[in-house]
Design a protein around this nucleic acid. Structure first.
Lengths: 335, 335
DNA sequence: AAGCTGATTGGCAGCGCTGCCAAACTGAGA
DNA sequence: TCTCAGTTTGGCAGCGCTGCCAATCAGCTT
């Protein structure tokens, strides 16, 4: 470990290879003109010295006024639900191909924390910033606008965006879910969800769902909402409580597949037949739900594609726009 | 958007507030001495101008020779399995508290890709680097050593580490799993797993498992290994094939809980009673398995703590060492 | 009033790299 | 041999910030 030794710099490579700094820089970035022989000698010196470029310096020098570095900042609300890692997967996959690196912040569904993270990420002068959802603190919006860089808001298209918006309508998801259940003849429908004060998109789905039910003249019979984050355990416990209180429901809509999976386990444990005694409908299209003995009826969201499209647009430039990637209703066997 | 306007710099704040750059810098970093009145004026100017510090410049200037920036590089093999987001959660949670930002790379279980990522991350002169597992390319090891920064290898303690190692013994996990099954009287034991050529830690668990079985005079009766990444669907299909071939097994050990969940669904679909007709044993202690009608028998790993401890040690300094955080056997109801 | 100590403050040289521009070199044509 | 366009190369001024050190100031003491 050369903890105390100076790290190798471009000047060292220049000296070792016998060329000037600018020439070495050009070779390393494969930009401008230089001869094959020069490139070989520089490459040899790089290997010889074990040179690792300093991107801090590179970004500072190269492009100080605007989109400086080759970094992209990403703010997601959580890592606990596989949905967000899936988005990250789509993002990093596409970003890698264009030579960008991702700096990640987790806001924990807290708008103030989001604002702090946006500020921290901007201090790295990223080429672009990806945030989740279209609702933000005024301060966050101000920071984003003042930064003068590309901003992508992921997942939710229900609302005006700052720049690029890539996702789908959560409200429409709720409406489609209700239409499906009504179409299958279910009438006494309940809801099991997690904290909609924090997860605004879950709230929008529920709003769309209820609106569609009401529009058809059937209301939502009962609901059970937990304060904790979504999980199978929370879904199972919540459905238990809901059914204890209102046993004569014929279908339940869940805030997501984690909760729905818990509901499925609840029915298994009660010995209730699905979907005859009770129908279940989820949201997200988690891979796991396809492996169930009865595939879960749910809405599959294009998470990887949202991430990929967001990353491509970030790099590519173009006008501000909202890109609706839609969603897919999986009929399944539980509703 | 001031895409074309110069961004606000520290010099602007200095001019606006009427102090020198050094004073403003000191105030912003809350370091050195300055009067309350100065701090207030500087703060006002910052708000007035909407100043966002440039950490690229800060890190370059402040600490160019060694651990430069306030960045930490993290390389994980995948985002598809919730295990790695959990590690990230532990890491980012602890890192946030110390003011570090995480730059993340996903290697896709590919050592060459890992090497490339380590190089790319090092070019940001991170204060430390977190990688997964103790097996790396020689080139990766060389980069890590030459960087002269803190390195943490997560998850696996089976092997010599470069600097800090935080995790547990995967081999011991396999041995403990075998001991549990043997202790419960199971003798005709099979294995269902995913690609152990890529997921080396799954390979180590299997090695420990087999060694323990053999040591007790009982071999592994049959195994079914899929080439794809682990998933519930893969686990279900694989168990189906295994049972078609060798129906008289009395227990199956899975490479992880995703696969085991698929196995559970397989048994449900076949109408096989668990654990009497077939016992199932997993690995990871995913939250979801606790919500099952019969909680899965599995090994719970301290994923969040591994991340948290790794982050703390990274920031704190200290000698090279291996920290074994152990694991917990969850008795469950399936084995 | 002069001297002294400790708290504040500012000037300026870099950190490692890239962009700009001028210098040096090359080979073909006159 | 000389000229000229095109290619290859190097010198040097910053990018925005921090660390160092000197300058200034305030409050006491003698």
């Amino acid at each position: 470990m050369n903890l105390h030794r100076r790290l190798v710099t471009l000047a060292d490579v220049a000296r070792e290879s016998g060329f000037g700094e600018s020439t070495v820089s050009r070779v390393l970035r494969n930009q401008g003109s230089f001869s094959k022989r020069t490139a070989d000698r520089v490459a040899a010196a790089v290997v010889e010295l074990g040179y690792v470029p300093n991107r801090l310096a590179g970004s500072l020098a190269g492009n100080a006024t605007s989109a400086g570095s080759q970094l992209v900042g990403i703010v997601i609300p959580s890592l606990a639900n596989i949905v967000f890692p899936d988005l990250l997967r789509g993002l990093t996959g596409a970003l890698d191909r264009t030579g960008f690196q991702s700096v990640i912040g987790v806001s924990d569904y807290d708008p103030d924390r989001e604002e702090a993270l946006v500020g921290a990420l901007l201090s790295w002068r990223p080429a672009g910033l990806v945030v989740t959802g279209v609702e933000h603190n005024p301060g966050t919006v101000a920071l984003l606008r003042a930064a003068g860089i590309r901003v992508v808001e992921m997942i939710d298209t229900d609302g005006p965006g700052l720049d690029l918006v890539v996702g789908f309508s959560n409200r429409a998801v709720g409406e489609a879910s209700a239409a499906h259940l009504l179409g299958r003849g279910y009438r006494r429908i309940g809801y099991v969800g997690h904290d909609i004060l924090r997860d605004l998109r879950a709230g929008k789905r529920l709003a769309g769902f209820e609106a569609a039910l009401n529009g058809a003249g059937h209301g939502l019979i009962d609901r059970e909402i937990v304060a904790e984050p979504s999980s199978a355990a929370a879904g199972r416990a919540a459905l238990d409580r809901l059914l204890d209180r209102t046993p004569d429901l014929d279908a339940v809509y869940f805030s997501n597949d984690d909760m729905a999976l818990g509901g499925y386990f609840c029915c298994l444990a009660r010995g209730w037949s699905i979907p005859h005694r009770l129908a279940l409908f989820g949201y997200n299209g988690l891979d796991i739900t396809a492996a169930m003995p009865q595939p879960l009826s749910t809405i599959r969201t294009p998470r990887l594609r949202i991430g990929a499209v967001a990353a491509e647009r970030l790099a590519a430039g173009g006008p501000a726009e909202t890109i609706d990637l839609g969603f897919e209703l999986m009929e399944g066997a539980t509703a």
